[in-house]
Amino acid sequence: MSKTDNSNHVSVAAALDLVDELNTVNLEYKEVRLQQLLKKFSTLDLIDRLPIADYFYLWDVIRKNHTIPEIGLTLGQKINPSSKGVLASWVSQTSSLAEAVDTFIENTSLMNTAEQWQVDMNGFTCTLKLTIHKCDDYPTIAVERSMSAMVAWANLLSGNKVKISRANFTFDAPDYKSKLVPIFGKNIIFSSDVNSLEFPSTLLEEPIQTSSMFLKSIAEQKAKEVLVTIRGSSIIKDKTKALVVDCLNNGQTPSINVIAKQQHMSRQTLYRRLKEEGSNFKKIVDQVRSERVRSLISSGQHSITELCFGLGFKEPSSFYKAFKRWFGVTPAQYIND
């Protein structure tokens, strides 16, 4: 029997397109629960939160009543500027796709606490992986919407048509699989062990057309205020990652003892809690550093030595070794390519 963690939430902004779509669907009748939800939405702000059980319910109503089977893909391609949440507003003002991706990954809980994205670099190929946390029955069409939206946002922010080298989906090929080709390209793998998008890493260097340092600072401040209100229910891995980011922002080397204390627990307890969530402190620090270094490099304002110490490495040799493991090339080769 599948279980859903009802402590998970999504932002109203993440579900607003579902509500808008339901208002266009000719339902023979509206269940009391649906009527109540639609009425509730009229009183909510974009930064408000919606229990994920209600989010699942909205998707289920759409799946059962919509005449377009590929509606998840269609919704993902629709971007409504008037319904931007705090995360979308923040991402829209970043300087490059590298910074946009890092900002999105580090703060996905602002949008949806069930979805977690990870970026991996392998030489000249970048892979964005989507995993679902503690939701065994996450709707397939919701995954399609999220993957489709990732491509749509990359197109919008860069001002160019993004070319995906390969797309992987964990579900079986749907009857409408040809509808995925215009979005993800022809190299689509179904029944995979991961949901992911692969593309040339050079794409991350693309500048954001709407970038504004001033507006970014405003959006970032608002986003951090919202994060404060939701981190109480966030998983320990997310909290730890956020604290590691704060540590590096303050020019400090991440310490498990310090970060455990900040979460009011012992080092041993933090170690155990992270292990229960399939992670560990070293892995989290490594992920934050690998994500952070791309945005630092893309700014073109830091020397290799500054990158080293800005990521909390005590020795340049450790930084060089980690960089080669992350990207398959040296920092100098990465910068010059």
Rank of each mutant, 00 (worst) to 15 (best):
L270A: 07
R267P: 09
V244C: 06
R294L: 10
L227W: 11
Y320P: 01
E315S: 11
N257F: 13
V228N: 15
L215F: 12
E220M: 06
I256H: 08
E277S: 02
I230S: 08
K237G: 13
Q268M: 09
E291M: 10
Q252D: 03
Y320F: 13
V244W: 08
R231A: 13
A260K: 04
A242V: 06
N280S: 09
S255G: 07
T229F: 13
K222P: 06
K216I: 07
Q221T: 12
D246L: 09
I304S: 03
S279D: 14
E306H: 09
C247M: 02
Q263A: 05
R273G: 01
C308P: 06
A219Q: 08
C247H: 10
I218K: 15
V226W: 04
S233I: 14
N250R: 09
H264A: 12
K283L: 13
Q287S: 10
Q263D: 03
I218M: 12
I235K: 14
E306S: 13
G312P: 03
K237D: 15
E315D: 13
I218L: 15
G278H: 02
F313L: 03
S233F: 14
R272A: 15
E291V: 05
V228Y: 15
Q268D: 11
I256M: 13
V245H: 04
S279M: 11
T229Q: 14
D286L: 06
S266T: 05
S233Y: 14
K314V: 09
R289M: 02
K314C: 02
Q262Y: 05
S318V: 02
A242H: 10
S217K: 05
I304K: 00
K282W: 15
C247A: 09
K275E: 15
K283N: 13
E276Y: 01
L243T: 00
V285R: 00
S266N: 04
D286G: 08
